Amino acid sequence: MTPQFEYSQNVNSEDVLRLGNILKQCFIDLGENESYINRIGVENLRVIHQNEQVVGGLALIPMSQWWGGVSVPMTGIAAVGIACEYRGSGGAIALMQHTVKELYENGVPISVLYPATQRLYRKAGYEQAGSACFWEIPALSIQVREQLLPVKPVVPINLEVFHDLHHKQATLNNGYLNRNQFMWEGVSKPLEKEPLYAYLIGEADQPQGYIIFSQHADKDDTILRIRDWVVLTTAAAQTFWSFLANHRSQIDKIRWRSSPVDPLTLLLPEQTAKLKHISRWMLRVIDVVKALEKRGYPKKIQTELHLEIEDDLIAENNGKFILSVANGRGEVTKGGKGELQLDIKGLAPLYTGLFTPQQLQITGKLQGTETSLDIATQIFAGSSPWMADFF
């Protein structure tokens, strides 16, 4: 731990003002600092000082994330900013290391962030763990016409109408957030003062999905931007596309967030939907035992995985562990053969299933016996992890 920095969990009004100015300079598109900080809550801000001067800070977002059909407590890290005159001083890594230690002391299993630079966060034990993707399709190319379900507007927009539907979709997708109030408010916050439109897919008493979107024009095209969506049935998927196709007279392109391999595109007659952008968010296993025990696993597998883990920041994460899996849940005990060796960074993409154990071994992220690699492949199998939210 870098000694010349002082980490503060209790942030006073002067610290908030200084941090707000730092974040405004760091993040040109953060929006109104006061509004953002009010939504985050001052109690979730952390700052780091040097000689009583605020060097930088970050925001904690307590929530949870779906892994193996189980919601695992997770703390998101957002708005990490260092004053420009202190950049390169070691303040950023000191801030992150203190934060990770605090999260461990508070019993947090995992933490997730969107990196501006991977090198910094890897020093704190984070690694690539899931995808954030933007897709685009020309409206004229959709060519799905039959609308199997009614589509009804939600006016005014009441986000509570969508909570249960989002929950049902989230349980099926590794990496999805179990959204808290802060994240739901982000869904309804207008972009560039664009009005939002929300529609339920299906009958009002038994909806099968929804879509929330805005529309805008740039110098070349008119764009329909899907802010949030849920599709739970085949009929809802068909209706989703036919509803969007009906905008073709006024809309040139449609953009949405989805997984790297979007199953919705299987309903399109041609491969006209294109993956326009993909980036990776990062995860850190804060507490090895809690993280492995709180996620879900394939229900019909009963086996043991013998791990040996290195963590240069959290001493309690070091050593040999046996992960016993049965009936969809895991139990961790100390000891074992240590047949699968990896550091805390290598554990992140294994835990999430972003890469297979064999791929992680080829890239030097772990080493294991053939048996341990096969067992790890079975228990961490699942849908490719992705997230529809940004924080």
Rank of each mutant, 00 (worst) to 15 (best):
residue 161 V to T: 13
residue 142 I to E: 03
residue 133 C to W: 07
residue 139 A to E: 03
residue 128 Q to G: 02
residue 164 D to H: 06
residue 165 L to M: 03
residue 125 G to Q: 00
residue 172 L to V: 07
residue 162 F to A: 08
residue 174 N to M: 09
residue 167 H to R: 14
residue 146 E to L: 09
residue 170 A to P: 01
residue 156 P to R: 06
residue 134 F to H: 13
residue 137 I to K: 10
residue 163 H to L: 09
residue 139 A to V: 09
residue 125 G to I: 05
residue 139 A to P: 00
residue 157 I to D: 08
residue 154 V to D: 09
residue 126 Y to W: 02
residue 157 I to K: 05
residue 169 Q to V: 15
residue 159 L to D: 02
residue 174 N to C: 09
residue 125 G to F: 01
residue 152 K to A: 11
residue 160 E to W: 09
residue 152 K to P: 13
residue 140 L to G: 07
residue 174 N to T: 15
residue 174 N to Y: 12
residue 162 F to E: 00
residue 133 C to I: 06
residue 156 P to V: 05
residue 144 V to N: 01
residue 164 D to V: 05
residue 139 A to G: 04
residue 161 V to H: 03
residue 143 Q to W: 10
residue 154 V to C: 07
residue 138 P to R: 09
residue 157 I to H: 06
residue 138 P to Q: 05
residue 135 W to Q: 04
residue 149 L to M: 10
residue 134 F to D: 14
residue 151 V to W: 08
residue 165 L to I: 03
residue 138 P to Y: 04
residue 165 L to C: 11
residue 149 L to E: 15
residue 131 S to C: 12
residue 154 V to L: 06
residue 162 F to H: 00
residue 138 P to S: 10
residue 141 S to Y: 14
residue 142 I to T: 03
residue 127 E to N: 07
residue 167 H to Q: 14
residue 172 L to C: 15
residue 166 H to G: 14
residue 161 V to N: 07
residue 150 P to V: 04
residue 168 K to S: 12
